[in-house]
Design a protein around this nucleic acid. Structure first.
Length: 514
DNA sequence: CTGGGGAAGGGGCCC
DNA sequence: AGGGCCCCTTCCCCA
């Protein structure tokens, strides 16, 4: 939309009637508008309202608004465009200093604490230079010159281009592991910020510097800032797109990822041949597994080879094994640590202790953001990641990011076309095991396919009288549902078979179970 | 409109 | 503590 020059309050050519309009608009201007707007934005920031970016500085997190950061700093602008999570080099800006920087951005002023202390001002100047906030650089210089320290500073360690900066305020020693902290005020913009008094909040058991999967970091370094080895958290961040919204897959990687179809087929065959690396766990096909003999009993007891249609039945069977003395089980109790509250037992006491927490009435690990409680610290920290939008695991092919490695592994099958989970009833293949399991419910007792299968058995028994290749009715346990059965054995398409079966209600009625 | 599949988010819990 | 897997659930798309 093009705004007429006069409405933008820009200078008008003399003699133009716009002069009058401009003067009128000046008269209509609310002088405090900008100030009021900034106050509102700062208020929103402190409450975390509409904040859309998190800035990580060492062990502190700050929430802010991308628009405001982008309008204030060229450097921050380049970062917020692509990421909701930004990590700043804590050697160039400490949490306390960044807090002052953020205050300046949202208020246009420096607090007296900063104005009075040269080391703080020097560090602030360095940070402002690093972040390319011209107004703050000017302000810091002016203040330092006023106090006569600027000249002295330029030759000192605290110079704005010095790599090593004072950590102001001095960091307090790492706090001892604290008992579960009370939930944070969810409206705080600053989650872990170390204020002038040192870390104002416990780390909540969440170490943001935890390892992350290796990956390229292509985050830009601001002009004038020192290039350095990527901080671990940099590697969590989405690589900047190069020539498109998502990076092109590496040529080297194309053979193991989203390569051409031929390559994918070759890969599948290789896997089939070698039975290699990623053998799907659970009910999928494995060594010694014979789907034909199991029919839809896809849950197999490994020791005895017996198949069951549901995990519940398999579990009951396994428990029966545990009570009796099943053949093939090694002597002695392999799980000697028994839970006093339930029937479960474990190999080691630590796992038992962990399990026993599931029986506790109060869960020991609360989320410091929402207060939700968990029985395991790991579950809580994982949960925290979803609050913070931390997705360390990135897909090389499409750039999509995940909170868990396992999710990425699952996701990669979309690109590879791999579908390792096969339904032993209908032959359908799935990339996600959970989708196979939900699919199996359809085949399971009470599922829609279950009644169809029952009908298939009965119908096939009837057909067996007239059809020589269906003489062995006991083999029907391994037959597909009726539609597939009918399609295969009567030479119909599956759709046609379903249509026929649906229209022939009399036949189904006649052979329905008594 | 409904059911099924694909894809993904999140919690539980064992190793 | 972190990895890995299971389970439940949701959302979207399509037939």
């Amino acid at each position: 939309m093009i705004i007429p020059r006069e409405l933008r309050g820009l200078p008008q050519a003399s003699g133009h009637p716009g002069v009058e309009v401009s003067a009128m608009l000046d008269a209509m201007e609310v002088p405090s508008h900008a100030r009021h707007l900034l106050l509102q934005l700062n208020s929103q920031r402190t409450k975390g309202f509409l904040c859309d970016v998190i800035i990580v500085v060492q062990n502190a997190l700050f929430r802010a608004h991308k628009n405001i950061l982008a309008a204030s700093s060229a450097y921050l602008k380049s970062l917020v465009v692509h990421d909701n999570l930004i990590n700043l080099d804590h050697e160039l800006v400490s949490p306390g200093i960044f807090r002052a920087v953020l205050d300046f951005i949202y208020t246009g002023r420096l607090s007296e604490a900063e104005l009075g202390l040269e080391p703080s001002l020097a560090a602030l100047l360095a940070a402002a230079t690093y972040l390319q906030i011209a107004d703050l650089v000017t302000l810091c210089k002016k203040q330092l010159k006023r106090s006569g320290k600027y000249r002295q500073l330029r030759s000192s360690t605290y110079g704005p281009y010095s790599k090593v900066l004072p950590c102001y305020p001095p960091r307090a020693p790492a706090p001892a592991p604290a008992p579960p902290a009370p939930p944070l005020d969810t409206h705080r913009a600053e989650l872990y910020a170390a204020g002038p008094q040192g870390p104002s909040l416990p780390l909540c058991g969440l170490d943001l510097t935890k390892k992350s999967p290796p990956g390229p970091s292509v985050h830009g370094t601001p002009e004038g800032a020192t290039t350095q080895a990527p901080d671990p958290i940099y590697r969590w961040m989405k690589p900047e797109p190069q020539g498109g919204p998502y990076p092109e897959p590496d040529e080297d990687k194309s053979s193991s990822g989203g390569g051409c179809e031929e390559e994918e087929e070759e890969e599948e065959e290789e896997e089939g041949d070698t039975g290699s690396s990623e053998e799907p766990p659970g009910p999928g096909p494995g060594p010694g597994y014979e789907p034909e003999s199991l029919g839809h009993n896809v849950y197999v007891c490994i020791p005895c080879g017996q198949g069951f249609p549901s995990s519940e039945q398999l579990n009951a069977h396994v428990e029966a094994h545990a009570e009796g003395d099943p053949p093939g089980e090694p002597p002695g109790d392999p799980r000697p640590y028994h839970c006093g509250s339930c029937h479960k037992s474990y190999k080691d006491p630590a796992t038992l202790r962990q399990h026993e927490k599931t029986h506790w009435l109060s869960r020991p690990y609360p989320c410091t953001i929402c207060g939700k409680k968990f029985t395991q610290r790991g579950t809580m920290t994982r949960h925290m990641r979803s609050h913070l939008g931390l997705k360390p695991f990135a897909c090389d092919a499409c750039g999509m990011r995940f909170t868990r490695q396992y999710r990425l592994t699952e996701h990669m099958r979309i690109h590879s076309g791999e579908k390792p989970y096969e339904c032993q009833v209908c032959g359908g293949r799935f990339a996600q095991q959970r989708n196979l399991l939900s699919h199996m419910k359809m085949h399971g007792p009470g599922g829609p396919a279950d009644s169809l299968l029952a009908v298939a058995r009965l119908g096939a028994q009837q057909l067996a009288h007239a059809s020589p290749f269906l003489s062995d009715a006991s083999a029907l346990d391994s037959l597909y549902p009726l539609a597939k059965f009918t399609a295969e054995h009567l030479g119909l398409s599956q759709d046609k078979a379903i249509e026929v079966l649906h229209h022939d209600g009399r036949l189904i009625d006649r052979f329905s179970p008594a």
